[in-house]
Design a protein around this nucleic acid. Sequence first.
DNA 1: GGTATTTGGTTTCATTTGAAACTATTATTC
DNA 2: GAATAATAGTTTCAAATGAAACCAAATACC
Lengths: 171, 171
Amino acid sequence: MKPNTSRKTRPRPGFALERFVPYRLSVLTNIISRTFGRLYGERFGLGIPEWRVMAVLGRFAPLAANDVCSRTAMDKVRVSRAVEKLRRAGLVEHAVDARDRRRSRLRLSAAGHRMHDAIVPMGLAAEALLLDGLTAAERRTLDKLLDKLTARAMAIAPAALDPSGPDPGDT
Amino acid sequence: MKPNTSRKTRPRPGFALERFVPYRLSVLTNIISRTFGRLYGERFGLGIPEWRVMAVLGRFAPLAANDVCSRTAMDKVRVSRAVEKLRRAGLVEHAVDARDRRRSRLRLSAAGHRMHDAIVPMGLAAEALLLDGLTAAERRTLDKLLDKLTARAMAIAPAALDPSGPDPGDT
DNA sequence: GGTATTTGGTTTCATTTGAAACTATTATTC
DNA sequence: GAATAATAGTTTCAAATGAAACCAAATACC
């Protein structure tokens, strides 16, 4: 089965990582995440988790941390830490829900709103730049593909992976 | 449980994170990475970095760590650590290039080849499952989109982010 | 009422990660 | 042919991450 043990780097017929969709998605996403993360980080001192929290609070407020979790697709630990950072930076205000004192009521502060409104156009511009070379049809397909693939991936995932899952570790 | 968009939570016109392409890509990729990572991890005790190294070594061998970096789009630290794990597991053999004694010559061991050949069909099956609901046209567009967007993202990235960059820290 | 269970959120701990520093070898320059 | 720069790869250190433990408040159950 191996008559040709050559000295040089022989490309074997087998498996082509560079065509493997999960790999390619990962590479693409990592490049984008680093680029955008640096964008937010350099000019605003925010990481991606913080930016996501600000994004949803800028649109829906007030929210409980829990709602932020579902809307940002981040787990509660990340949300908790991001909120804490934003609070210390004076960008987010935290209050306790009067009806259910476990729940928090999070909203952007005035400074938070100003920063939010400054970041959003930047993000949208960067997104536009990214999508620049795509035809209108390709954009539509991209949109559809993202929805389809995400739904599909969530269906495939062994359910324990679902971040909105029932906190299986908690006693 | 009804979605808590009742009284106070007013959706404002502003920015819709849930439509933002970088965000959606990140969510999709995270789900897939965790699913695949768990797949490899549970049955073979490998993480994604290790699996990637095995994948390229299964196809091109021998490679220097450097070549693995470029082919897997991982930085040298990750590659170094993944190779070390694989060596300890007896899946990868490490030799020194005679012509340039800094360079390594990495290849799969016999056991590594067996594991590689066992994993590949599993990965391909999972990929097929993921792409299951897509039409042939959508698949073609996906393929094109991944290439286009990756090229675009690399072009946009401030160059310092390029993982194949000139090791700016190393003085 | 009182106890058990669930839920919202934080903290702890071990692992992963990457930037920068470091070692060893080769290439360059004078 | 030293001195210097560049390259391959490893190690160190600090930050990010997530699973599980944890605390506090609210519900369910009796």
